[in-house]
Design a protein around this nucleic acid. Sequence first.
DNA 1: TTAGGTGCAAATTCTTTGCACCCTG
DNA 2: CAGGGTGCAAAGAATTTGCACCTAA
Lengths: 168, 168
Amino acid sequence: MTKTKKREVDLRMRGFEQVCRQAGIKLTHQRIEIFREVAQTGDHPDAETVYQRVRERIPTISLDTVYRTLWRLNDLGLINTLGPPRERTRFDANLEQHHHFVCVRCGLTQDFYSEELNGLRLPKSAKALGQVESTHVKVYGVCRGCVDMEKTKRSSTRNKEAKPCPRN
Amino acid sequence: MTKTKKREVDLRMRGFEQVCRQAGIKLTHQRIEIFREVAQTGDHPDAETVYQRVRERIPTISLDTVYRTLWRLNDLGLINTLGPPRERTRFDANLEQHHHFVCVRCGLTQDFYSEELNGLRLPKSAKALGQVESTHVKVYGVCRGCVDMEKTKRSSTRNKEAKPCPRN
DNA sequence: TTAGGTGCAAATTCTTTGCACCCTG
DNA sequence: CAGGGTGCAAAGAATTTGCACCTAA
């Protein structure tokens, strides 16, 4: 159904092989099939789903290999996670329509408001997918706190490992 | 730090009490403090964090009450979750900048592209929060599949409970 | 009073890890 | 051939559930 074009898949596979070689990690049968599975589907499978699908081709593969591989691919920048990786569910009592600024360093998520963004015009490609109900903008970047921290660190001599700003 | 104004908190508390009464659920000490905690903070705490904070006021409260209450509040529409509720991490091999259409019925997440949205102009309120790196639009709505399913259900007599369309 | 709510502890579910064997480079 | 990678089983973390007591309405 939501399937990626063959040409695009081939392109991704080549990128994958190149990055792996460059990073000096092995191109195992399992890794190849796991990446292929994620690359060729337009849906956004979780680890369990990838496992089930790859198992049809490699019946002996184990779920933990799928987990390890997916995170490895993520670290290599070959795939991304949908939503915040490795995080627990978080709650929000702000019911007004609003948007989020998410710090890529520390995970701090701050609300902001914008009439303009609330009434965002969407392209046909988006409207074609279904009945639109609402629109939400996520801005990724480095929050004030983390920017300041970096400045401090660079100017001072004492730079231990970056302590992330409080996750909230 | 990220703290909501007192007036706004009071407003939310009143809304909360009203909704609870209307829904016929009890206004227990625990529920009140849990809601207050989420309502008065501008951060987006997870269950554990809420638990730790509320415990300062109600030392005997248990973590499972916090979980139950947060989901209850969520079901009542008094709070929302950040990101998809109760879902596992999902992966995506599409590295081009793209946006998502998320079906609120079945969770299907589809990619779409838009130059216009890629280069979205952001309001000052957003830029003020930090160094912007990228912007991502999430469109919520009902996907084609679910719209069709609803039509079918309404026109036909056989309507068992709504089987969600495949989650991918 | 009394049905719904809570705390506790145990159960589930999802994910990660230790270790011995295996296979790519 | 060597060292990273894998499968297995067991551990861990996060979240949910069963049950008896408690409390708001």
